[in-house]
Design a protein around this nucleic acid. Sequence first.
RNA 1: GGAGAUGUACUCAAGUGGUCGUAAGAGGUCGCACUCGAAAUGCGAUAGGUCCGCAAGGGCGCGUGGGUUCGACUCCCACCAUCUCCGCCA
Length: 426
Amino acid sequence: MLDINLLRNHFEEVEKALASRNEEFDLSRFHELDETRRNLLAEVEALKNKKNVASREVGVRKKNGQDCADIFEEMKELSAVIKEYDAKVSEADAALQEYMLTLPNIPNPTVPQGKSDEDNVEIRRYGEPTAFAFEPKAHWDLGAALGILDPETAAKITGTRFHVYRGPGARLERAITNFFLDTHTEKHGYTEVFPPFMVSRDSMTGTGQLPKFEEDAYKVTGDGKEYFLVPTAEVPVTNMYRNQILSGSDLPIMHCAYTACFRAEAGSAGRDTRGLIRQHQFNKVELVKFTRPEQSYDELEKLTRDAEDVLQMLGLPYRVVKICMGDLGFTAAMKYDIEVWMPSYGRYVEISSCSNFEEFQARRANIKYRDNVKEKARYVHTLNGSGVAVGRTTAAILENFQQEDGSVVIPEVLRPYMGMDVIPAK
RNA sequence: GGAGAUGUACUCAAGUGGUCGUAAGAGGUCGCACUCGAAAUGCGAUAGGUCCGCAAGGGCGCGUGGGUUCGACUCCCACCAUCUCCGCCA
């Protein structure tokens, strides 16, 4: 959510800053909604003041044993009017609030101009695209040949865009997950949390998935309650601190978390239909930080490096791109994508997104900090990034480390977790 | 599933229908004394959400939402959360 005072006092700048975003929103309604609310508020507050003054008078008169009938008469009427006004105010309040939730974040000035992902700017590369002395297979063909990836059975028990992993495939997914978590906790200093996979509507709103992207989320009901399956651990982990004032000495707070992630992928019909790249349910280890505003861009660099590090340790070639205006998500002020080399696609494929949301989520979720109780609390900056997507890592390992005979060599660092050096061909 | 209790500022906590929520008290924070230094102790000081307003000032805020009343932290109802006991299941 944007700072409402920024819109009031620097409307043109905001308008300009949001102009190159590839999002639909309507700034023109702001002034009307804001003024309606403020005018109503001024009126009702004047009435309430009158009521409070009269109430105090009653207290005084009662003490002196005086009669209050005239005040009661007058107040009875006034109370009814106030009640009407209150209803109007909360209506205007809700309208403004709802509207504010539809406005995207203001991009950082250093975000490159551009319309689509084709305009993202490559920052650096690690390794070279894997060269093969034979015709490499796609991971879905490899997975089928090795008997470790089974989308057909998943389709039978659930539907499309799901996978059953079998034997070494299941083990590989689990090995990668544990390797990521261990590395981020032991080497990079994150504190692991294991949150619920279902969250409330408030949590989804706090991180910005709602109200705009409801069609992308899975809703679960039962016991008369409504929950959402987490689309990313960002949601439960960021909301751990919702409505809290953190102590400045605790910052930066750094968490890593494994969750399954659930996405409806509405609007992606026909894309990436084969393999592990685009699933309704996938595994991910997420990195989440809460920082002081002045630290957040340094912390974004570090977070991105932490995500890159696990790919380096695995020996996977990747590149880092800086996301341009048109491709920046609704909530991010700046974002880097890490893209792993995927031989079957013949290009780099996103495996991590690392974003600084600045105050945008903190404002929605009401997360503040201060160093001393005497200080006014300020919004923290929130950041997160995949560290990294597990399913896509499985795909990348299968493809990049496949051998001519159809076997797959397990990266050194995973072997302790895998209990084997190579997934043998059948 | 049954019975009961609790929910007030960063934390603990007093307050049971009226003019005290910049809310008693305490922790906390800061200063001074004591001390080689620290702890402990004593004395003193200090701050405390949010919205409207240029300001003066005002509104709201006692888990959330309703209701009763001229007036609600205080009474009633619903919901949420936490705790205790019983039952049930591992």
